[in-house]
Computed example of a mutant assay.
Amino acid sequence: MMTVTEDTHKTYEDHVTKQLELNQEHLNSLTHPGSQVKFDVDPDILPTPDPNLRVFFFDIDNCLYRNSTKIHDLMQISILEYFKNELNLKHEEAEKLNNTYYKQYGLAIRGLVMFHGIDAMQYNRFVDDSLPLQNILKPDLKLREMLINLRNSGKIDKLWLFTNAYKNHGLRCIRLLGVADLFDGITYCDYRQTDTLICKPDERAFEKAKLQSGLGDYKNAWFVDDSGLNIEKGISLGMRKCIHLVENEPNMLLGKTPRHSHVIRHITNLPNVLPELFKH
Score class of each variant (00 low, 15 high):
Pro43Asn: 10
Glu92Cys: 02
Gly170Gln: 12
Arg144Gln: 12
Val37Ser: 05
Glu13Trp: 02
Asp7Leu: 14
Ser78Trp: 01
Asp14Trp: 04
His262Lys: 11
Glu232Leu: 03
Asp128Glu: 14
Gln19Ser: 02
Asn272His: 12
Tyr65Gln: 09
Ile156Val: 15
Leu133Trp: 10
Lys208Gln: 12
Gly185Pro: 11
His260Pro: 00
Glu247Val: 03
Thr31Ser: 13
Leu64Ser: 11
Arg172Asp: 10
Leu182Gly: 10
His169Gln: 11
Ser236Gly: 01
Arg125Tyr: 11
Asn272Trp: 01
Lys219Ser: 15
Leu53Gly: 04
Lys138Asp: 00
Glu247Ile: 04
Trp222Gln: 03
Leu237Ser: 02
Gln104Asp: 14
Leu176Ala: 10
Ile60Tyr: 09
Asn248Arg: 06
Ser213Arg: 00
Arg240Lys: 15
Ala221Trp: 02
Cys189Met: 14
Thr3Pro: 11
Phe56Asp: 08
Tyr101Cys: 09
His266Arg: 13
Leu97Gly: 07
Val37Leu: 06
Phe183Gln: 08
Leu141Thr: 15
Gly228Pro: 08
Phe39Gln: 05
Tyr188Met: 04
Ile77Asn: 05
Leu141Gly: 00
Pro250Ala: 03
Glu25Trp: 02
Leu211Asn: 10
Pro47Gly: 03
Ser130Asp: 04
Leu147Phe: 07
His91Tyr: 02
Ser78Glu: 02
Ile267Gln: 06
Arg172Phe: 05
Val263Tyr: 00
Asp73Thr: 14
Thr196His: 13
Glu13Arg: 13
Asp195Ser: 15
Glu25Ser: 10
Met252Gly: 00
Phe58Asn: 08
Lys279Ser: 14
Asn99His: 11
Leu182Asn: 11
Ala221Gln: 06
Arg66Lys: 15
Asn220Glu: 00
Ser227Lys: 07
Gln76Leu: 07
Leu211Asp: 06
His72Ile: 13
Leu46Glu: 13
Asp140Tyr: 10
Asp202Ala: 11
His32Val: 12
Ser153Gln: 10
Phe162Ile: 05
Arg259Tyr: 03
Asn248Glu: 14
Leu80Asn: 03
His26Thr: 06
Pro43Leu: 08
Ala120Val: 05
Lys256Phe: 04
Asp73Pro: 00
His262Met: 15
Ile109Phe: 04
Gly214Ala: 01
Gly216Val: 04
Glu249Cys: 03
Met239Lys: 04
Asp42Phe: 05
Trp222Gly: 01
Ser29Thr: 07
Tyr102Asp: 12
Tyr166Thr: 08
Leu277Val: 13
His26Met: 03
Met114Pro: 00
Ile235Trp: 03
Met146Val: 15
Gly154Lys: 09
Val273Gly: 09
Leu150Lys: 10
Gln122Asn: 13
Met252Gln: 14
Cys63Met: 12
Leu176Phe: 08
Arg265Val: 01
Arg110Ala: 03
Leu182Phe: 09
Met114Phe: 06
Val273Asp: 09
Arg125Gly: 04
Cys199Glu: 11
Leu133Ala: 06
Met121Trp: 02
Gly255His: 04
Thr69Tyr: 14
Ile79Met: 09
Lys219Arg: 14
Leu107His: 05
Asn149Ile: 10
Thr3Met: 07
Met2Pro: 15
Phe39Tyr: 13
Ile235Ala: 01
Asp59Gln: 08
Leu270Pro: 09
